[in-house]
Design a binder for these strands. Sequence first.
DNA 1: AATACTTGCAACCGCCTGGTC
DNA 2: AGACCAGGCGGTTGCAAGTAT
Length: 286
Amino acid sequence: MLSNGQGCWSDVARNAGLQRCGKSCRLRWINYLRPDLKRGAFSPQEEELIIHLHSVLGNRWSQIAARLPGRTDNEIKNFWNSTIKKRLKNSSTSTSPNKSNASDPRDFTGAGLFSMSEQDIMNLCMDSSSSSSSSMHAMVMRNRFDPLPMLENSHDHHHMPNAGAGLFNVSACMTQVGIGDGLFYGNHGIIGGGGNNIGLDQSELFIPSLECISIEEENNTTDNTFEKTNNNNLLNNINIINNNNNNNFVESGNYWGGENLRMGEWDMEELLEDVSSFPFLDFQVQ
DNA sequence: AATACTTGCAACCGCCTGGTC
DNA sequence: AGACCAGGCGGTTGCAAGTAT
């Protein structure tokens, strides 16, 4: 491969005299031999990015890998299945159902799901010393509720979660539908997942969804309460009430769109615009 | 020390897609 | 149009290494 470059993999297998098919050679090259592969454990930044991307793309490992230089789809897939998935599962089971009304993934009428106001979010972004604060700000301006890790509501509003502090809850704020891996994603992120990852009670987590974002973008009302029903598949029967008075984000309606939703129906490029400005994307692969 | 169990990762398998004839 | 092939992809398996008993 190094001397001849990528050509026909069956030729590679033949010319190398290997007892392998071209397909096997290709896999070996891609997953192991490629010189640009990044070895070693996943960094917290990579971990967060994977969770973020997975929430948008689902099990599209190759697309996720395309955004993680030096990592292969297989590697990411293994990492997800062996580490992240397990961690999210554990954290969801270890979360006391009494602490939140959101134990039922479809029940989002409970209070306390979100107590971070837009101003809080802005403060969080503006106070962040991260170089990404400007992009964060832009995102918040564009999508008042952005699928980004802005989850804490009371303990430490004014600091970005420390990227080095382990898995903070990008997962809990993201949306994924129709990707079955045993976790409740629903329309509103990984329900009940991940609270312990950052030492927060689940009830303290806001779980904004991409649907929320879409609705938000279309809704310019300044009224404290808005309600919008969208008839397309993605937003079917979702009503959102944004009550700024008590800073709670209360939602109601049919939250398990499930069958109505197909990843392919999403505008991936639009969704990934947010990914491209993900605050930790500016880390350098070593 | 021996055995059982768990974990992480590379490789395999089967399906799908796109190109060519 | 349909057969064939190569490549791409996601799910699954096998196994070595690590850990617990």
